[in-house]
Amino acid sequence: MEPAVKRPGAEPALPPSRGEISAALIEYLRDAGPLPDGAALAGADPLGDDLQLALYLCYELHYRGFAGVGDDREWDPELLRLRAALEKPFLAVLRARATRHGHADEALDELLVEPLDGQGVSHFLQDKGELWQLREYAALRSVYHLKEADPHAWVLPRLWGRAKAGMAAVEFDEYGAGRADRVHAKLFADLMTDLDLDPAYGRYLDASGAEALAIVNMMSLFGLHRALRGALVGHFAAVEITSSPGSRRLAKAMRRTGAGRAAEYFYAEHVEADAVHEQVVRREVVAGLLEEEPHLDGDIAFGADATGWLEDRLADRLLAAWRSGQSSLRTAV
């Protein structure tokens, strides 16, 4: 099969590598070398920069791809084999270290209680975030928000009845309810423009550390595997439950720093939208899936726990850097 012709500039360039595995993978994608061998994979840190970037590159072939890389590479059996070898230790570490609950209601009920004296990133940005920190935050969140809702769309064909209808309704809202200018990814691009960032897809992949990539990789992992549909739903529920209060704090941070109207609007819209989404996801998607497939209870809890665990790791990196006045990014923006 001939590789499909690419429109120039439509896809991001391949980023620089971060180690042996990602270096070999990038060479392979350029038709310039073999994939990494088993020895490189065996010694890799499942949460480290090298493995997380390699996994991100494998997954990105299912979304927008890269300039100079043929569209047909999405189903290259060698790449799928590598992806599976990268996913295995990542999933194992999430299962072993993140799991705290055995049942969906326990995991989600905990998220429904709002701490009075929260110490998270949104609390920091609300109270004392400076514009440069908001820019860093937006740059590394862009690896997800510029494809907001896309990793979750993979789950739709794996659901039935109430769970499918509820999930589709929330995704429809995320995709702008039929209006291109309201697509959440577009609203985020507008926020980036307000913050004087480049809204081009994939622009800040190289700036984003392993902790940020791991969150998006978890979404793609859960979304692309039917076997992990319960975890995807649990992850999505955790995001929708925690988003509304967090977005209120981020909207306040944008307002206080004069970041701009679009920057504030992105988070203000998520306060209102996600208060609705939380209700629909808990009452229709989670409850509907549990009714159809009660054996997925533990996986729903796992998806929620994994989300919180990875978000906490990102928060630790950001707050440690910012509290000492340093950049949290790998490259300056």
């Binding site: 709002e114 701490p115 009075l116 929260g118 998270g120 949104s122 989300t307 665990w309 978000e311 990102l314």
Partner: peptide, 11 residues
């Protein structure tokens, strides 16, 4: 509301 921060609130 709860007085203490909880794990997984690192938003």
């Amino acid at each position: 509301h709860s007085p203490a921060p909880r794990p997984g609130s690192g938003d």
